[in-house]
Amino acid sequence: MTFPPLREELRGLQPYGAPQVSTEQAPVQLNTNENPYGPSAACIADIATAVAEAATTLNRYPDREHVALRTALAAYLSRDTPRGVVPEQVWAANGSNEVMLQLLQAFGGPGRSALSFAPTYSMYPEYARDTSTAWVQGRRADDFSLDLDAAAALVREQRPSVVLLPSPNNPTGTALPPEAVGRLCEAASGDGWDGLVVVDEAYGEFRRAGVPSALELLPQHRNLVVTRTMSKAFAAAGLRLGYLAADPAICDAIRVVRLPYHLSAVTQAAALAALRHAEELLGRVDELRAERDETVSWLRAQGLRVADSDANFVLFGTFADRHAVWQRLLDRGVLVREVGPEGWLRVSVGTADEMQTFKQALTQAMAEVMEEDAS
């Protein structure tokens, strides 16, 4: 047997992760959809005080039910739905990645399947693989929307235990209309079978005005799960705090697979402090939305295809050799993501100065590539 005795289906695979480049090589980092604006001094001080207080009891295990945090998260989510959210409907973990993994651990597994529609977040099939859940992949239309008739038919045919629907979608930025969520929740249940429909709203706070959250549909569909994160709009990627809202029975089921005391006292304290500063941390969202929309317009004016975006990133193309464009951007100190369908690139929305640098670098990069192609 080859050492180490790794599961056969994992042999030769590379770990997930966006390319990491030092800020010296790429001062403008626009590849991981981070919020470019950090917390204020007041927020930092509040977090430091909360963590210091938590440190006085580090000899004790944290609250494994994270009741205070779930209460605060429920209050925050209630702003996005007229029916409100109660703490019993909320569950949190170390980033939305762990939330998703716990969902697949509890509701996937051998003999079960998970389904999504490509192009979409590249970690989804890895969650399925890691939990020995069969992976079923449908396709999006050329404009990255969902053909609801075809999508519902595939769900009814495959009867997956979990349907993963990011909205806005990563890497395209496409948001789902409410009727899509309701239609697929109905398609995923019936005849003695209930599959979960997980709407991943990691970028939900960036959606355009008039685009509702799937949270509004929770009262109508007991098989609906809506996930969020503090990594993006909350400017807390380093905190690693993701959470979900769902029927309390779903939260209770996740307790069976969660690790004991999976959220540290420090994480809980820092997250609670950040939530106290929600208005401030979310204060730049409108600014980032405006910068995103201006970037979309500018890219289209350059003759490029651009996906409509409700997120804090933009997918653009298409390039005969996208890697050549990506490399030339990097040569000019701008790091974007080479991801999504062939020929496309994704740029995170940064500060106004960062986006101006990106535009200048892209103009030069495309001119160089065109010149080389012509020679």
Rank of each mutant, 00 (worst) to 15 (best):
E280C: 10
T295N: 08
L281F: 11
G283A: 13
H277V: 08
V225I: 09
H262L: 07
F234P: 04
T295S: 14
E279K: 11
L244D: 08
A249T: 00
L288I: 15
I254S: 11
S264H: 10
D286V: 10
A237E: 02
E291Q: 14
L217T: 01
E216V: 07
A273K: 08
V285Y: 08
R289D: 12
E294M: 10
A246W: 02
Y243Q: 00
L218R: 07
I250R: 08
E294Y: 08
Y243T: 00
T227I: 02
E294N: 12
L241A: 02
L217G: 01
D308Q: 15
V266D: 03
C251A: 10
L215F: 03
P212T: 05
P260Q: 07
T229M: 00
V226C: 09
A245Y: 12
Q220G: 00
V256M: 10
R207M: 06
V211C: 03
L217I: 01
E287P: 07
A271K: 06
S264E: 05
Q220D: 12
Q302H: 14
E216R: 12
R305V: 12
P248F: 03
R292M: 14
V226H: 09
L241V: 12
A237M: 06
E291M: 11
Y243V: 01
D308C: 09
A236H: 01
V256E: 14
L224E: 12
T295M: 14
L263E: 07
R228S: 09
A307F: 04
L215S: 03
R284L: 07
G283N: 11
V225C: 07
A236Y: 00
R228I: 01
D247W: 00
V285A: 13
P248H: 03
L239S: 04
T227V: 03
F234Q: 13
R276M: 14
C251R: 05
P212C: 04
L244C: 05
R258H: 04
T267K: 13
A278Y: 08
A237G: 08
D286C: 09
L281T: 11
L218Y: 07
T229P: 00
T227N: 10
G238Q: 01
D247L: 04
A249S: 01
R284G: 02
A245S: 13
S264T: 13
A274N: 05
R276S: 15
L241P: 00
P260H: 08
I250G: 03
T267P: 00
R240M: 05
Q268S: 14
